[in-house]
C-alpha cells in the first residue's frame, strides 16, 4: 500500500529520474531524508541533486527563483508550512511577479507540509493556502488523495509558473492507495468526490475526508450530499462549483483555514455573485475557529471542523 507521504516521495523520485532540470532543496532533506522522510533515500539515488539547505527560508526560496531563471526546476521543501512565512517575501514579491514583469516564467514548486495534526500546536499546524492564493502569479494546490498527491506534484514540476503545493500532514500516513495513476484530472479542475442532490459541500485538503464522513452520516437522515474536492484553490474551478450548486440548490463550504478571507469566503463570494439564482437557501460555511491552532489534542479537535460539526451545519442548511 502506498501512503500519501510515499506518493509525494515517489513523485519527487520520478521527477528527478525523468527531468535533469529538477533538483530538491530544503532543510534536512539530504541523507537524513527530511523531517517527514518525504525525500528518504533520494540523495543517495540522485547524488548532488538533493541538497541540504541552511535554516534560511528566505534564501531557500530566493535561490530556487534564481535557479529557475537559469532553467532549473527546483522543488523546495519547507519543513512546515508555518515556516514558509519566513520565505514569504521571495514567494510573493519575487517568484509571483517575475513573469508579469519580465516575461520570464518562474517554474518553482514550494512544498508546504500543511494543516493540523494532534499535538501540532500554533506553529506546526497552519493552513496557508488562502494567503498564497491572494497574490497574483501563483498556482496553489491542495491535494486531498494519494493519487492527487502524486500526479499533482508531477504536474506542478512541469508547470512553468510557481506552484505552492499544500500537502496535508494529517493525510501523510493513514491515506493509502494500491497503485498510483498515470493520468489524472489537470490542476485547475475540481472533482466531484461524491455525487448527491440535496446539498453541495465544497472543500479541500484533509477536510475532504471529514466532509465525506459527514455526507455518509447524513445518508441515515435520507440526504444525498454532493462533495466537491477543489484540488486546486488557485485556479479555483468555479464552473464545477456552480454546476454542482445548480443541481443541489444548497451550498456549504468547509475549510480547515481560519475564516477571515479564506477559500470558503472566496467560494461563497463567487457563488453569491455568479450563481445567486441557483441558491434555494443562504449558503453556509464551516472553518477552524479564529484563534491560533491549539496544542492540546482535545482543544485541537474542537478547533478544526470535523465530520460531526460539518454534519450539524449541513442539517441546518438542509432545514433552511
Amino acid at each position: 500500500m502506498i501512503t500519501y507521504l510515499e506518493a509525494i516521495r515517489l513523485a519527487q523520485q520520478k521527477a528527478l529520474a525523468t527531468d535533469p532540470r529538477v533538483f530538491l532543496y530544503g532543510q534536512d532533506i539530504g541523507s537524513f531524508g527530511g523531517a517527514f522522510k518525504a525525500t528518504k533515500n533520494l540523495s543517495a539515488e540522485f547524488p548532488g541533486r538533493v541538497l541540504d539547505a541552511p535554516l534560511s527560508e528566505d534564501a531557500i526560496v530566493g535561490m530556487a527563483i534564481g535557479a529557475a531563471i537559469e532553467g532549473a526546476r527546483p522543488i523546495v521543501e519547507m519543513q512546515f508550512a508555518d515556516f514558509s512565512t519566513c520565505g514569504l517575501n521571495q514567494i510573493v514579491n519575487h517568484a509571483a511577479t517575475l513573469f508579469y514583469r519580465t516575461s520570464v516564467p518562474c517554474p518553482i514548486v514550494v512544498r508546504l507540509p500543511s494543516g493540523g495534526t494532534s499535538g501540532g500546536g500554533p506553529f506546526h499546524s497552519q493552513s496557508l493556502e488562502a494567503i498564497y492564493a491572494h497574490w497574483p502569479g501563483l498556482v496553489v494546490v491542495t491535494p486531498a488523495t494519494v493519487e492527487d498527491a502524486y500526479t499533482m506534484l508531477l504536474e506542478a514540476v512541469n508547470i512553468d509558473d510557481p506552484v505552492i503545493f499544500c500537502e496535508h500532514k494529517f493525510l501523510y500516513y493513514h491515506l493509502k492507495a494500491d497503485t498510483l495513476p498515470e493520468a489524472a484530472l489537470p490542476i485547475g479542475k475540481a472533482r466531484i468526490a461524491r455525487a448527491g442532490r440535496d446539498a453541495t459541500i465544497v472543500t479541500h485538503g484533509a477536510m475532504l475526508h471529514e466532509s465525506l464522513a459527514a455526507a455518509q452520516e447524513l445518508v441515515e437522515d435520507g440526504y444525498e450530499i454532493e462533495v466537491v474536492d477543489l484540488r486546486s484553490v488557485k485556479p479555483l474551478d468555479t464552473d464545477t462549483i456552480l454546476a454542482s450548486v445548480a443541481r443541489t440548490g444548497r451550498l456549504l463550504c468547509v475549510s480547515e483555514e481560519w475564516p477571515w478571507g479564506g477559500v470558503t469566503a472566496e467560494v461563497l463570494a463567487r457563488v453569491a455573485t455568479e450563481g445567486f439564482g441557483l441558491l434555494d437557501a443562504a449558503p453556509m460555511r464551516v472553518n477552524a475557529k479564529d484563534t491560533p491552532v491549539p496544542y492540546h489534542p482535545d482543544l485541537w479537535a474542537a478547533h478544526r471542523p470535523t465530520a460531526s460539526t460539518i454534519a450539524a451545519a449541513a442539517r441546518r442548511l438542509l432545514q433552511l
Binding site: 528566505d58 534564501a59 527563483i65 534564481g66 535557479a67 521571495q90
Partner: peptide, 13 residues
Amino acid sequence: AMIPSVAGALLAR
C-alpha cells in the same frame, strides 16, 4: 532579495 537569487542561479549553473 537579489542576493540569494543570484546565488541560486549560480547553483543551477
